[in-house]
């Protein structure tokens, strides 16, 4: 059945057809969109805010820049970028999931962030933007859910301006054994329970824990980025490698 492996991919620990994954991921996010922010705060005990803040600092955005916040979901990064790039800059919040995009748009408008933000329903594998159009592309906790990651990286590379940079903030492999054990116990026991209590949806959070384990580790993702022609690729482990921030340039 070796032919079959080309048409399949993983959805958490299950193996599914590639066409199916998009639908299944969409289902997960349709289901959690409304309570996405609360769950993020609960699950990470607020630490996700620090990770995102660090990502913003490392992005080095300047007034007038054009930024793509890919898989931006509920717009945490977009909100901050919008304030940095100012009225001459532009931030595009793109997500493949309509529910998430709608929650994000409502949230940002309620915060009074309008004018330099655009919302685009887009697939990371086939970005609907012209070549060389962004100074910065970020994808925070999104690459994991993309079916064909290599295709997505190539597509991001295409839309980046020469000199632009990509930042990938994503769950990764903890660097120490002890932390890894605690983390495993936490994500397979507590996480689905929390998900059940808050969103009444344990399956989606089971998927979250599984998809994190199936995501490539630091070095693998680095080489994937290098294969997509990114240069000077580096990564930094945050909170003991639970999350890693990868950075690469297009020259």
């Amino acid at each position: 059945m070796s032919d079959n492996s080309e048409n399949t991919t993983h959805f958490g620990y299950q193996t599914v057809n590639k066409e199916e994954k998009v639908g299944k991921v969409a289902e997960v996010f349709h289901s959690v969109a409304a309570k996405y922010d609360i769950m993020n705060d609960l699950m990470s005990m607020g630490i996700h805010r620090i990770w995102k803040r660090h990502t913003i600092a490392c992005a080095g955005a300047r007034p007038g820049n054009k930024v793509l916040d890919l898989a931006g979901g509920t717009g945490d990064l977009t909100a901050k970028f919008s304030r940095i790039v100012g009225e001459n800059g532009q931030v595009v919040l793109a997500d493949i999931n309509e529910s998430m995009l709608r929650v994000g748009r409502d949230k940002l408008r309620d915060l009074g962030i309008v004018g330099n933000v655009e919302y685009v329903l887009a697939n990371a594998e086939e970005l609907p933007f012209a070549d060389n159009s962004f100074d910065i592309v970020t994808i925070a906790f999104g690459l994991r859910n993309v079916t064909d990651k290599d295709k997505a990286l190539a597509s991001i590379y295409r839309v980046l301006k020469p000199g632009g940079r990509l930042l990938v903030l994503e769950f990764s492999k903890p660097t120490t054994e002890g932390l890894s054990k605690i983390y495993d116990w936490y994500s397979f026991n507590l996480l689905p329970t929390m998900g059940k209590l808050v969103t009444n949806d344990a399956d989606s959070y089971q998927y979250l824990a599984e998809s994190i384990r199936m995501h490539p580790d630091q070095e693998t993702l680095k080489s994937m980025m290098e294969n997509a022609e990114f240069e000077e690729v580096t990564y930094q482990n945050l909170t003991g490698g639970i999350v890693a921030l990868h950075k690469g340039y297009k020259f």
Binding site: A57, C58, G60, K80, R83, I84, E87
Partner: peptide
């Protein structure tokens, strides 16, 4: 500490400095 005044007259504070 990297500080920037945005159009609302509020501060963006970041660390580290890039560029």
């Amino acid at each position: 500490l990297v500080m920037q005044i945005n159009e609302q007259g509020l501060l963006n504070v970041y660390s580290p400095l890039e560029g």
